[in-house]
Nucleic acid binder design. Sequence first.
DNA 1: ACCTGAACACCGTTCAAGT
DNA 2: ACCTGAACACCGTTCAAGT
Lengths: 224, 224
Amino acid sequence: MVKPAKASASHAAPAARAYHHGNLRQALLEAALVLAQQRGPEGVSVREAARQLGVSPGAPFRHFPNRRALMTAMAEEASARLQIEVRKAIRPRDKTPLARLRALGRGYLQWARAHEAHFRIVSARDQIDLAGSPGLQASMQAVRALTEQTLHEAQAVGEVSLAHDAAALALLSRATVYGLARMQLDGHLPQWGVKPGGEAAATEATLALLVKLMAAGASGAPAA
Amino acid sequence: MVKPAKASASHAAPAARAYHHGNLRQALLEAALVLAQQRGPEGVSVREAARQLGVSPGAPFRHFPNRRALMTAMAEEASARLQIEVRKAIRPRDKTPLARLRALGRGYLQWARAHEAHFRIVSARDQIDLAGSPGLQASMQAVRALTEQTLHEAQAVGEVSLAHDAAALALLSRATVYGLARMQLDGHLPQWGVKPGGEAAATEATLALLVKLMAAGASGAPAA
DNA sequence: ACCTGAACACCGTTCAAGT
DNA sequence: ACCTGAACACCGTTCAAGT
């Protein structure tokens, strides 16, 4: 986007173009994101990003030790934003724990739809270095903790039966939402009877079904 | 695996090595699978496979129009095998529809664990050409049909409430099992409280929980 | 019919040298 | 401190030519 015009003559002093970019790290992240949007995570080329920014092929390696580090930095940003959006998806009107759980899941699904490239990067485990990124792990843990806590509250309040294992409930919620998000982005939903354009409605109805099933076996809920 | 010894002298007639492989297509699929096992689907290189088989870099392209076609052929084989295993996972002792649904899901999870490389290829949507492979679509549809039919039976028999949308039930089952399989292979389970080595037990317990939740709201089941 | 081998247009990454 | 530009060891793919 900030591609500078090439110097026209080879003998003149190259005064027109700043010697270094000043902000190459951030510019690389932005260019890489555009490439990911156009060609998917695999299609991100650090050479191509450098070319678009008018720097030499080696320049990016002053800012990222390797391609994987670039991808991981993108995933960190994505996952931080996802965490924020998921939190914001829970509105004050969602008064019961299960209503919050559903809102949380819906926020996740909506974010995956709205930020497909970023979502793909976060879940492209062979392109990023999850183990080497405390930030990435932290924002994933935050979503997990929110899920588990909400389920604990649902059990405490009698919305979900205490007979069910809390860890299994959390894992079930996460697996379902993650599976739905992937099926959505990978184009598997049409095969499951979802009409084109109906992805959002279908995934959210499925999420709602899970929440309803979780509530069904409960005993001491204050209201039905 | 069938790597022929290099001709020792350069002046002698190359009679020792057959001019062509005779079975290059199949050999490529096998070599590519080994590469996928070692480095993941992204690590599959057709040049490297050719090298290992002692053929020239261009040779594979007589058998596959491009790399994606090779990957798709691998996915076809994988998905045909997955379908068979899932069917075999349903034992005669699984008398009720929900018992069969659970067995089916367990078969899927076990296969994903036992054939990680193949499973990754089937679900690597940007490496394969799902739309251009009727075979791949067919075996995926077969698993889907089995899931949906089993759920219909569960509703007919009163094991699952007719109040729930059949399509949503099927999608919920699939999303859960797919999500669990991915989390398992991508190493996300430790973060969700699963101890190393406990992946099989945790995913299967989660599947069992889903089945239990589905049964909970039913009314007219013959037996509890 | 099947394969070779050279070529083309790409990669990621390193590193001396420049500013 | 930051970047260049050449180099290295790779890719996927094509295509004339060989057997």
